[in-house]
Write a protein that binds this DNA or RNA. Structure first.
Lengths: 211, 211
DNA sequence: TTGCCCATGTAATACGTTACATGATTTC
DNA sequence: GAAATCATGTAACGTATTACATGGGCAA
């Protein structure tokens, strides 16, 4: 098993192995907690996903049940093979840049709304960025010591960028209201713009956007 | 049908409706192309997901087949009900902040590697950010006019933040090598650090260590 | 002994990806 | 008419979410 040629998507496995590797043996419950706190910034998973995955990984020799405690609590520890797998994934796996973000989707669709509504939406997004950022910034891990420090810094940097974007966008939307008044952003009834794909140049360009 | 109380996750629906709304009637094929170009920054989907979804949405009255062209090509147009749905989703739906990013996961796990390897990984990430950013920045949409301009700016802002993070992280990793030499980041064989949850404090900490 | 939280799990469903299949049109 | 590309689709699989089920321990 565990043929080392890692499957298409195995990020959950990796996240679990990484946590076990970094923080030592833990139960499924502990790991589920960890997804809410330390690693929430990078990955997430519920216990319903974690328990079966641990069983599979145990069968594959990536983790081992170290001990069993009260009320069926099983403590898993990473095996040498598991530790090897995380490291080789880190070193060899080029992460997919594929984007799938509801926030970005709302940003994308913003021009469908009239100015007032668009402002409301951006304000809500801004509030959300701000709360998230505050949540990250107050984590003690920020100091040079904590394990998740790199991911945390990345999250904070991106949170700040998002916040700035919200401010800029708000400014622009408000500015637009000053003169055009009723001409916010492709206002109201949508203007059919010929066809799709026309806006992005021709077939040759396709590779340029390749992600 | 289409009970207006929108389901848990319906972002694909929304993305399709948004594209149809913004750019006018299009075929499934056109929409699949659009996911590669204009909206790739916010959402993505392959044709195998799009075709069935369009059929469902047509059954729900959110889109309608406007015309059928050569080789079975069906042109879908958004209906008023569909347009209403996108707008109310935009206005009412608080997007989930849930993170699931392989890039962030690699950042999180970076301390598992020794300094040399960590630097290699960050260099690769940096290259990736850089390419992605270049791809975004050269899009003509950046100008105030294009439909996806807000999402594009957000993507660019976050891309820059990621690039900066990579530079900072590289600097830190190289700096660490100067003195400690063999003491990069939790070097080599992992140190079991007691239990999980200990690093984050919080209300339920007591239970985390429980047996 | 009732009620709450801890801790683990299963089942059903929804969402996404990969692989495969098909035919129509254009290009050589 | 062979090959490439356009355009649509189905099937199988893997991953993620929601809802449900269970039982132990603890405190009021």
């Amino acid at each position: 098993m565990s043929s080392l040629g890692y499957a298409v998507r195995m990020s959950l496995k990796i996240a679990l192995l990484g946590l076990l590797d970094a923080k030592g043996p833990a139960s499924g419950y502990d790991l589920a907690k960890a997804f809410e706190s330390s690693i929430s910034n990078a990955w997430q998973a519920g216990h319903t996903q974690i328990y079966p995955e641990l069983v599979k990984m145990a069968a594959d020799g990536l983790v081992a049940v170290e001990s069993e405690g009260a009320r069926n609590r099983k403590i898993y520890a990473i095996t040498p093979e598991g530790a090897r797998l995380v490291r080789s994934w880190l070193i060899e796996h080029q992460p997919t840049a594929a984007m799938r973000s509801e926030v970005a989707l709302q940003a994308f669709l913003l021009p469908l709304l009239d100015r007032e509504d668009a402002i409301e939406v951006v304000l809500r997004l801004r509030r959300q960025f701000s709360e998230r950022l505050a949540g990250l910034e107050c984590r003690p891990v920020v100091k040079a010591s904590g394990f998740g420090r790199y991911a945390l810094r990345l999250g904070i940097a991106q949170g700040r960028a998002a916040l700035d974007w919200a401010d800029d966008t708000l400014a622009e939307l408000r500015e637009a209201g000053r003169d055009g008044e009723g001409s916010p952003a492709e206002t109201g009834p949508r203007p059919p713009e010929a066809g799709l794909g026309a806006s992005e140049a021709g077939p040759g360009t396709s590779a340029a956007e390749g992600e």
